[in-house]
């Protein structure tokens, strides 16, 4: 069916990185990213060390480089911004390939690119090696407030449902001669998104009714983790 595989960031595998407990991976990722962000631009060797460490983990996880590379495109807007920075910044100018660029701007661009790329790659690696349900369990084990974990869980569960709904609405718009890409039709697209919000809100109410009907009292019950239950 149209939904396909729900978790587009996960890459199935059994490497040590896949098997590591989710809460450890989340905590390590957070610490690693904070460390990378706090490192001054000029410590190029430090970034080289981070990158080497990260690539080592990627190699250990046996997630194909192409798989991660394709998902790195989320970084593109930041790359574009980073490329522009040396041209629009002030300060002493220097020559690169015959173009006059700002030297502090060049350093800022380098910092943005290096930190951004390492951060995105690290996050993707964790996402590729951790099942979404494990991520939620990991967050719960890290004592993230239960309400937040519940919200994240519902988001995971309904992301595909809402995406499919949006897809159907877009098909209906195209069928009536409206091209969602053309700026002339953006007001219509905007109204569609509004309608999608209202529909999702109503669905939220229906889900809540269904939960109440099965005795929900505001707290999620403790269910056994998949590993601890026998299979029928």
């Amino acid at each position: 069916m149209g939904a396909g595989h729900g978790h587009r960031l996960h890459y199935h595998g059994h490497s040590p990185v896949h098997r590591a407990p989710a809460h450890l991976k989340i905590a390590t990722l957070l610490a690693f990213v904070l460390l990378v962000v706090a490192t001054p631009h000029a410590w190029v060797w430090a970034f080289a060390a981070y990158a080497a460490l990260l690539l080592g983990v990627v190699a250990l996880s046996r997630v194909p480089a192409a798989y991660l590379a394709k998902r790195m495109v989320v970084e593109v807007p930041f790359v574009v911004f980073a490329v522009l920075v040396p041209f629009v910044s002030h300060g002493p100018r220097t020559e690169v390939l015959g173009l006059s660029v700002s030297e502090p701007g060049l350093w800022a661009a380098w910092g943005l690119l290096a930190k951004g790329t390492i951060g995105v790659l690290a996050s993707l690696t964790v996402a590729a090696t951790t099942e979404p349900q494990q991520l939620l369990a990991g967050l719960r084990r890290l004592r993230l407030p239960d309400q937040l974990v519940q919200i994240a869980g519902f988001m995971l569960r309904y992301l595909d449902v809402v995406t499919e709904e949006l897809g159907r609405m877009m098909v209906a718009m195209r069928s009536r001669g409206c091209d969602p890409r053309s700026p002339r039709h953006w007001p219509a697209v905007g109204r569609t998104l509004g309608a999608l919000f209202v529909r999702s809100y109503e669905r939220g109410e229906r889900v809540h009714l269904a939960m109440l009907s099965r005795g929900y009292d505001g707290r999620m019950p403790d269910l056994p983790a998949p590993a601890h239950r026998e299979h029928a």
Binding site: R157, Y158, R203, R206, V207, A210
Partner: peptide, 13 residues
């Protein structure tokens, strides 16, 4: 009560 849309009723992972 079994509601009409199973996506409303099945909300867990």
């Amino acid at each position: 009560v079994v509601f009409q849309d199973p996506d409303d009723q099945l909300f867990m992972g």
